[in-house]
Amino acid sequence: MTTIPAHDNENAGAANWERYRHQPHWRNNQDEYDAAKFGMWLFLSTELLLFSGMFVAYTIFRIMHTETWGNASHHYLDWRIGAINTVVLLISSWTMVMAIRSAQVNHQRALRFHLVVTILCGLFFLGAKVGFEYLPKLAKGEVPGSAFDYIGSHGYVPSDYDPLFLGLYWVATAIHGSHVLIGVGLLTWCLLRAGKKHFGPKHFTALENVGLFWHLVDLIWIFLFPLLYLVG
């Protein structure tokens, strides 16, 4: 039996993670943990393939409409907002790692703190997305398909394929944004469980898997940002 480091006084008394028992069909906690993580990686591969459809569509349309893609990207999207959001998500990945680390060394207050920061970063990302991009775009008619009624400004005249570019932008970022929203929900669930001391050195399966999901969501944004905002 290894000694459990006790960094703060809240750990006095038996915490819930110490009492955790695996489900009856597993031989031990370790097997269950390994399986859960393996399952999560499989799920992440499906997420990657889901987004791959949009990346393939991006590549094809970029080849078909190179000029539109270059102009539209600069005109419709402000790289500064994208960049700030990228930095925010990268910070949140760091705090996510720290949250899991805190659970592993039984630092319960730090665990909750890092989860809260991660959640706030996710909410900031969504707020910036909706407040500075989606709502202004809706107001100006910069939307895909037949609803597109943007007439251009500052000498910019929309090409026939601008609705397609915006279609890709809206679909890719909205599906990504829904993942951020789901991630925030999962992190909140983890925070509630952390409040009941469900996570500690011997049991942090759910926390780690939510962390993996969160990193994937970040990673997809790392690809979406340059493709949509920067490559002109």
Binding site: V56, A57, I60, F61, M64, H65, T68, P144, G145, S146, A147, D160, Y161, P163, L164, G167, L168, W170, V171
Partner: peptide, 16 residues
């Protein structure tokens, strides 16, 4: 929403 991915009239590609 007629996003146009698969609609040639909007620059999309049905073969995709």
């Amino acid at each position: 929403f007629q996003i146009g991915f698969f609609d040639p009239a909007l620059g999309g590609d049905p073969v995709l």
